[in-house]
Design a protein around this nucleic acid. Structure first.
Lengths: 346, 346
DNA sequence: CTAACCTGGGAAAGAGTTTTCCGGGGGATC
DNA sequence: GATCCCCCGGAAAACTCTTTCCCAGGTTAG
């Protein structure tokens, strides 16, 4: 045992050159080094099994090869799909991904951002709906700016309005189009599992859906909107609540697939058949949930690509101008979980 | 703009003490510092917004707060469930998780392990079935040992036989018990989606299932064993292959839930009803897949806890003796996707 | 022929912590 | 009142790398 580290100095000695020259060879610096020495140094490094000490490099360069990835819950397939895209991109660039899970705690978020700052992370990708809590939001903005002042880059997925590059699905349009499709199917009375009231994603989808109904001259009654957790269990409970209160809706829109899954489970338990008695639609098209039966009508988002794109933006050379925004359009997928309502003739 | 870092020296000056004293206060060193100076230093650090430079610490201590987590694919819910457990544990200890995804490439695995070594990562958790490829295996063992010689700790999930602490499900027993339950239901002829031939997990589950059949005096015909990818699509394709070849099985055992999902999709498309015409069973009890219909008969593994446990072992104080192994027992869950075969009377 | 220039390589100064080693001062003991 | 300790604070080395500055030697231009 014992730390048998090979340092650059040892490589240099072995190659019979100075430390500086060895460094120049190893990281292909601006300055030229003769081919002869270059070969010698590389051979020595190879022979001794040299592996540069990353912390020393970070200290000297004041920038590391770490890229932060912040999600609420890595076991949630929405986040893990995006995470896959992010890691694909970072690993392609030879960078190392740091995974931080916040579980929707502002405090954990702060802690992780501080750690990334301490590590001189090169960039961070923030994933997940932005809360509308003002205090919390101000804190996040401060932390992002602190990170940026250190020379770090920040990109967000689904968190518009922050001082950083953003990849954002067009939730409003997606939900509106979905609503139009459902209206075209003959639905007139809707119930909505709207998720938490303070998440922008949930609100945008609700708004988009709502506005399409308004445009079509349809009401959305207040008691048909149920708020709850953005999770499978949240959807399950919200649906039970909805059923307890009674609803005359012919179609249930859950603002994400995960909640829709819980909804379908609750309906199944209650003996309500989908889509015969009630249509159900979701949002996201989570890959893992594509095999539910009936297949879920939803709005497809290219989650993995969104993650990839965000990472790419965060890692691109510095660009001029303010933060950029990439808008991603969803694609409505009408599948088995929705059909014209029973009383619909047409 | 520009790097406005607060260094420990500045904190020390502001507090009117030496650098060493400040350091001792900040990281509660062994040596005592009077309460008066202690307060002064802490106040100064707070006031200046001091954040220790992690790379400098790593360089000085020769050990970082990084913990590696290697999985094949973070979007696979099997891995993301385990990842959740790992991050829960690491974050509780104030450590930072580095996520590496190998996509079953030995080369990527090497690259990431080298990066973790370069960063003086404190520990690494390797998740995922170990390939039986001898060369690759030898390489992995060498890399693990190199990591350990540096003072890093290694723990594995589902990778028995490596020179490291291991959390391993008892695949054999789980599969055997599942088989016994299915036999008790009346099944006599089985087909198996056996996954890749060279993954220990897949093989153990196949073996366990097989041996239970043998014990019961049942044959497992060769043409009823299909190998394929350990993924949803692998299960889908394997099932199609099985159907093309024709099978007289009354029960299909997919060696993991993800493949079982693909199998159910293929069967549904082919118009074969589950469980009326064919029973289907899986393994793992992936949380995200619990809402499939019919609900999948499977063997539950506490995936999140397994990840947590592995991280815990990797982070515990050094212990004497060789690598430890924790065996995890699965629990057979008979659900809707299996039932006595149609021709079964009793 | 000399001055300016260019090229390649070496010495050394950081980068920010931790930690060891010393020394000084104060308290306790006799 | 002196001696021995102990306690606490400070100076400095170490950790490994990057990068700037400088110098030697050779080349080109005037």
């Amino acid at each position: 045992m014992g730390s048998s580290y090979v340092t650059l100095e040892q490589v240099a000695q072995h190659a019979g050159v100075s430390l500086a020259t060895a460094s120049r060879v190893i990281n292909g610096s601006t300055r030229q080094v003769s081919q002869r020495l270059r070969d010698k140094v590389n051979a020595s490094a190879e022979e001794l099994g040299y592996l540069a000490n990353a912390s020393a490099q970070t200290l000297a360069r004041n920038s590391s090869s770490l890229v932060g990835l912040l999600v609420h819950d890595i076991a949630d397939p929405y986040f893990s799909s995006i995470a896959r895209g992010v890691t694909r991109q970072t690993e392609e660039q030879g960078l190392v991904t740091v995974l931080g899970t916040t579980h929707r705690s502002a405090q954990k978020e702060s802690t992780i951002l501080a750690a990334l700052r301490a590590h001189r992370a090169r960039a961070v990708v923030l994933v997940g709906s932005r809360s509308t809590d003002e205090d919390n939001n101000a804190r996040l903005v401060r932390e992002i700016e602190a990170f940026q002042e250190q020379g770090g880059r920040v990109a967000c997925v689904s968190q518009p309005g922050l001082p950083a590059d953003t990849v954002s699905p067009d939730n409003q349009t997606g939900a509106s189009e979905l609503a139009r499709h459902l209206i075209a199917q003959g639905h007139r009375r809707f119930a909505i599992l709207a998720g938490p009231t303070n998440l922008s994603t949930a609100r945008e989808r609700l708004d988009g859906f709502h506005s399409a109904l308004s445009t079509a001259g349809l009401e959305l009654e207040h008691h048909n909107i149920v708020h709850g957790d953005f999770t499978r269990d949240g959807g399950y409970e919200s649906t039970q609540r909805l059923m307890r209160l009674g609803t005359d809706a012919t179609c249930l829109f859950a603002v994400n697939d995960v909640m829709a899954t819980g909804a379908m489970a609750a309906l199944r338990e209650a003996g309500i058949r989908v889509p015969e008695e009630l249509s159900v639609a979701g949002f996201d098209d989570i890959p893992t949930l594509r095999d539910l039966t009936p297949a879920l009508t939803t709005v497809r988002l290219p989650l993995e690509r969104m993650g990839e794109r965000a990472a790419l933006m965060a890692l691109e050379a510095d660009h001029e101008g303010g933060p950029r925004t990439v808008n991603v359009q969803g694609e409505v997928l009408m599948r088995e979980s929705t059909r014209p309502p029973a009383d619909h003739t047409g």
